[in-house]
Amino acid sequence: MRPLSHRLTAEYLGSLLLAALVIGSGIAAQRLSPGDVGLQLLENAAATAVGLYALILVFGPVSGAHFNPVVSIVDSAFGGLTWRDTAAYTAAQVLGCVSGAVLANTMFDSAPISISTTDRATLPHGLSEVVATVGLLLVIFSLVRTGRANIAPAAVGAYIGAAYFFTSSTSFANPAITVGRMFSDTFAGIAPTSVPAYLLAQLLAAALAVPLLRLLYPTPTTETVHEALDTEGQPR
């Protein structure tokens, strides 16, 4: 496993680029397809899916490419990270996503920080976040625990792209990106008042995913995200 400083740098940069990708493609979609929300969502989802695939390939060999506190929490539950490292990962992920929001706003000549006014806190949205986050964790850790981590980048990108459409919340599925998206009053934003409900749903999903994974994959081929990569960063 790489030194913690290297891993935190990867988590910060990956989270920054993920937030810039999600928010920036949302801003571009709004401007390219004004008045057509369905097309805007399609453009946002497609960019996020393929961009996430690339980011996991880049940063996976260094840190496991979590970019997401619930992924780090579940990895710790399976022994892949210490809880102290998970706390450090979470800080890097949140800071990265906030930085990415500022970067996206600035790249599109908007105010660097604009607090979102998009209210998303409804019961269907909360349920959607539980479903989206459980699904994401099942995709990641089912592959890791059965020795198929080499296809995780494609699988995660495909799942998130699909979940933009099959969930009413458009699948944030990530506490760090949820916080980051508060700082952009654009297509991908979320009002601060809606954030606590999303965070609660995502953490509940992590609590549900761990026993499900233990039930479905009780004898893992590979225990952790990090063990799925050799020292040269190539999937086994």
Rank of each mutant, 00 (worst) to 15 (best):
A91I: 14
A92H: 05
L95Q: 01
L95Y: 05
L95M: 13
G96F: 11
G96R: 06
G96N: 08
V98F: 07
S99F: 11
V102Y: 05
V102C: 10
L103E: 01
A104H: 10
N105L: 07
T106I: 10
T106E: 08
T106Y: 11
T106V: 13
F108Y: 13
F108H: 10
S110V: 00
S110C: 00
S110Y: 12
A111T: 14
I113W: 08
S114H: 13
S114M: 12
I115D: 07
T118R: 14
T118S: 07
D119L: 11
D119C: 00
R120T: 12
A121R: 12
T122P: 10
T122S: 15
L123N: 00
P124V: 03
P124S: 07
P124Q: 10
H125Y: 08
G126A: 15
S128N: 13
S128A: 15
S128W: 05
V130G: 06
A132G: 15
A132E: 12
T133C: 14
T133R: 13
G135N: 09
G135I: 08
L136R: 04
L136T: 04
L136P: 00
L136N: 01
L137W: 05
L138P: 12
V139H: 02
V139M: 01
I140P: 03
I140T: 04
S142D: 01
S142V: 06
L143C: 03
L143V: 02
R145E: 01
R145F: 01
R145W: 01
G147Q: 02
R148W: 01
R148G: 00
I151E: 03
A152V: 03
P153N: 07
P153K: 08
A154H: 02
A155S: 08
A155W: 05
V156F: 06
V156M: 06
G157E: 04
A158C: 02
Y159K: 10
Y159G: 08
G161H: 06
A162D: 05
A162P: 02
A163R: 11
A163W: 07
A163P: 06
F165Y: 07
F165G: 04
F165Q: 09
F166H: 15
S169F: 05
S169A: 15
T170W: 14
T170C: 12
F172R: 12
F172H: 11
A173Y: 13
A173L: 14
